[in-house]
Amino acid sequence: MVAELLPLNPDELLTTTRSVRKRLDLDRPVPLDVIHECLDIALQAPSGSNTQSWHWIVLTDADLKQKVADHYARSYNDYAASRPKTDDATMGRIRSSSQYLADVMGQVPVLVLGAIDTGSDLPPGNQASMWGSLLPAAWSFSLALRARGLGSAWTTLHLVYEREVAQILGIPSTVHQGVLLPVAYTKGTDFRPAPRRPLDDVLHLNGW
């Protein structure tokens, strides 16, 4: 099966790939062929020394999804309780949609975990070189989903219980999870760029 592509130019694709939560369609099945197609694209992402040591754990089994979702919800609830309360409308919307995702994670048609085999424990110090061989591929996967009318949300809160999730899924101790992506078709495809700080606030030319 080859999924139909949305009529998006590259800039539109890059600026409208959002974290989708409330607009994930929990009732529409996601064919595994589409997941495979998007992961094939993701494998063209950079990989340090061309090691290609990434792994992708795709969950469609309802029981396994719920077990992972339970750990995610537990971590999210602890995180949410620790955050200061504000009256900011934007943060209110984010809290609402994040709580929604925590509540329905187990009902999302497909969960995809991106992981990397380091051959040992996580290295000390700055780990950018290691995660740089996984996270670009995970973002390419998200872009490929968006191009086909599907959405996801970049989540890492389950990593508080990484070992517990690894035990549930039989993931070896040398393989470290980096991201959890709930995947579904979206309710509508009319996503817009998100508000961002002005470039001049974060741009440093020839030094800090």
Score class of each variant (00 low, 15 high):
D88V: 06
R74N: 12
L26I: 08
A184F: 05
G188K: 10
L143K: 08
N9V: 10
R74E: 15
V112I: 06
G92A: 06
D88R: 06
H176M: 10
I57K: 03
P109H: 12
W131D: 06
S129V: 12
G170K: 06
L6V: 04
P182A: 08
V175I: 14
K22Q: 13
R192Y: 10
P198T: 00
R146H: 12
A184T: 09
S133R: 05
I35E: 00
P10D: 02
D201A: 12
R21V: 00
R196V: 13
Q177K: 07
Q127R: 15
G132A: 09
P109T: 07
L203T: 12
S96T: 10
M91G: 11
L43F: 08
L64R: 14
T186Q: 10
H158R: 00
I57V: 15
R196G: 06
A137V: 03
S96V: 01
R28N: 08
L43Y: 09
T186G: 03
R197C: 09
R83C: 14
R83M: 15
V183S: 01
F141V: 02
D121Q: 15
G106F: 02
N77M: 13
S53E: 09
R23E: 13
A128V: 13
G125A: 09
N9Q: 12
V179G: 07
V175Y: 09
G125W: 04
P10T: 01
L32Q: 13
T189H: 11
L157W: 08
V183I: 10
R146C: 04
W208T: 08
P123Q: 05
H176I: 02
L5K: 13
V179Q: 05
Y79D: 10
E164R: 09
G188T: 05
F191Q: 09
L143G: 00
Y72A: 04
A194L: 14
G170F: 04
G48F: 08
